[in-house]
Design a protein around this nucleic acid. Sequence first.
DNA 1: GGACATAGGTCTACAAACTGGACCGTGACG
DNA 2: CGTCACGGTCCAGTTTGTAGACCTATGTCC
Lengths: 132, 132
Amino acid sequence: MNDNPHNPDVSSSESLVLAQPCPIRDVLDRIGDQWSLLVLLTLRPGTRRFNQLRREIDDISKQMLSRTLKQLEQDGLVSRTAYPEVPPRVEYQLTELGQSLLTPVAALVAWAEQHQPAVNAARERYKHTTAR
Amino acid sequence: MNDNPHNPDVSSSESLVLAQPCPIRDVLDRIGDQWSLLVLLTLRPGTRRFNQLRREIDDISKQMLSRTLKQLEQDGLVSRTAYPEVPPRVEYQLTELGQSLLTPVAALVAWAEQHQPAVNAARERYKHTTAR
DNA sequence: GGACATAGGTCTACAAACTGGACCGTGACG
DNA sequence: CGTCACGGTCCAGTTTGTAGACCTATGTCC
């Protein structure tokens, strides 16, 4: 399969750093799951309760929020505090690790804000130049 | 609904910056789709052909790679050059915009590498403390 | 005291997204 | 002359996400 005669020396020209068990993949798979970054960003200003997060993110389903929070907690990015009251009260907040992640994420958000016009322009251009 | 005695003044404490039509969501939805960042990172060292990308990323399906590349091209992050040869040759490379995005992404990757032990430790801890 | 609301979930159908493999057309290799 | 390779697309089947009913247990209203 990889001893292809047309394609000499493939293995050495490809870096293959992203082959499955690597830290980049590992972390990217977590935060690149549509919701995690959003939750983290929403927690940036401070502690939030479950439904509060849901309202702020607005189009996340309960199940996904629940699952995402559980993962973030598992990864040590968010801490969960449940108060044994009725109705229950549960507070989520960033851990130190979670806050440290927000630094690079903030850079990403800054990029998004800064380059949004360029992206939109590219999209417009694509619509016009597309041959299909 | 928001006159909950435990939760005074909810509406004013919620920032709601992430309500749907916002640049953050817009860009995060693109790059947070499991594959886009990976493709971008794989293109970082230079031009790549379709199947070359597929081999380097290794567990991406043809369809998703095709779709992801199309989106990245649409957003002006990647350029596509098809040579009318047989068998066809198609080269993808980062645009300037795409390269500019890699700066904050690299910061994220650096975070991932640096804090991977902490994340793994948190996962271990979770496994032990969990009551279920 | 009985109905109803409330917070934080979970469970269950149903819908959307993703996967793996077949397929396409044409030229080069064996 | 059969088979492989390239860059895709298309289809069937599996996985993932969604909306909404439901749960627990108390406080509030009447």
